[in-house]
């Protein structure tokens, strides 16, 4: 049932490190997952857990000191499998995939559009980069795209500069920019974090619509559990550069098996919480990535840690694709 043709992306034992002047930070430390076509994978975790670095590793948009040191990232394009981690960072093969096959949306729409070019120019530039098309025709496509995303009078607004757009409109423009070449995979790195709550819902709704229309696969990076529950088909929970729990939404949110996932879910405020009741927090703080604890990296903060947690936990397959990186996941976790 897991036939290769269904897959769009396979990440295997990805390790990405940052070489700072004095130390090496293992930002992503052996991440593996598979993605099927047309599905949405939600990647959740605290700040600094490596979710963004994982996404940036896929398209090789890491900062200069960031490096993929091991593992493979296989992208299944219509012309066969491509090993992305082996491509040159800014080589023509990688660039042919960026924007055309894999689109990206970033966290801060205010900062991710270039202030000195018009919205239309920036969207059209993605088309002219990948297709032999006249500038006028590219502009027309950009107008269509913006109209589809609900920007009124798109044909005139296209001549506007980013500062003339509101935050929500800028993020729509970013979606238009990322989707205009009809990519097979869209990586959305916290696309709604910088937006108002009402705008957040609109943007997510639009992303769903686009996915329906084009059958795009989406990797949605967020720290918002509500968004994941709403948007994702599968969930990867990350902690300290590793996926600690992976499964479908039903599996992970319905019966979370990793103590970290549980703790995350318990720390989400819900409507109707008793007055005066304190929200659960995860005790301690994330360890320094250049000085990781021995064994399970969550053990020092875990309420269920045992002696066994001093040794590195193995991935346990719970069936149906649900896997958990914890010694105690088979039971015995009661709060």
């Amino acid at each position: 049932m897991n036939s290769e043709s269904d897959l769009i992306l396979k990440v295997d034992n990805l390790q990405t490190q940052f070489h700072l002047s004095r130390r090496v930070v293992k930002a992503v430390n052996g991440v593996s997952f598979q993605m099927k076509r047309g599905r949405t994978l939600g990647v959740v975790g605290e700040s600094g857990c490596g979710k963004s670095v994982t996404a940036h590793s896929i398209v090789q948009l890491l900062p200069k000191m960031g490096r993929i040191v091991d593992g493979s990232i296989t992208y299944y394009s219509s012309n066969g499998a491509v090993e992305l981690s082996k491509l040159k960072r800014n080589g023509s093969e990688m660039r042919a995939i960026r924007g055309k096959e894999i689109g990206m949306i970033f966290q801060d729409p205010m900062a991710s559009l270039n202030p000195v070019f018009t919205i239309g120019h920036q969207i059209a530039e993605n088309i002219t980069q990948h297709e032999k098309i006249s500038r006028a025709a590219a502009m027309e496509r950009a107008v269509e795209m913006l109209t589809m995303l609900g920007i009124p009078q798109a044909s005139t607004r296209i001549k506007d500069y980013p500062h003339q757009f509101s935050g929500g409109m800028k993020q729509r423009a970013m979606i238009a920019l990322a989707m205009v070449c009809n990519p097979k995979l869209l990586i959305a790195d916290e696309p709604t974090t910088a937006l108002d709550v009402t705008i957040q819902a609109q943007i997510l709704e639009l992303m769903k619509e686009m996915q329906h229309k084009y059958g795009t696969s989406i990797i949605l990076i967020t720290h918002n559990m509500g968004i994941v529950a709403d948007m994702a088909d599968d969930i990867a929970v990350m902690y300290m550069g590793r996926i600690v729990e992976f499964g479908t939404v039903r599996q992970v949110l319905g019966s979370p098996r990793h103590p970290y996932t549980r703790a995350l879910l318990q720390s989400v405020p819900v409507l109707g919480i008793a007055k005066g009741e304190r929200l659960k927090t995860i005790r301690g703080s994330t360890p320094d990535p250049s000085d990781m604890p021995e064994g399970c990296e969550f053990a020092p903060r875990c309420d269920f840690a045992t002696k066994q947690c001093k040794t590195v936990p193995a991935d346990t397959d719970l069936g149906g694709g649900h896997r958990v990186r914890c010694w105690n996941c088979m039971g015995g976790l009661t709060t």
């Binding site: 398209v59 948009l61 800014n90 990688m94 660039r95 042919a96 995939i97 960026r98 924007g99 055309k100 689109g103 990206m104 970033f106 966290q107 801060d108 900062a111 991710s112 559009l113 270039n114 202030p115 920036q122 530039e125 993605n126 980069q129 990948h130 970013m174 920019l177 990322a178």
Partner: peptide, 11 residues
């Protein structure tokens, strides 16, 4: 970020 956006277009 907009430089990253430019790179993400494959320029």
């Amino acid at each position: 970020d907009y430089v990253k956006t430019a790179r993400s277009k494959g320029l």
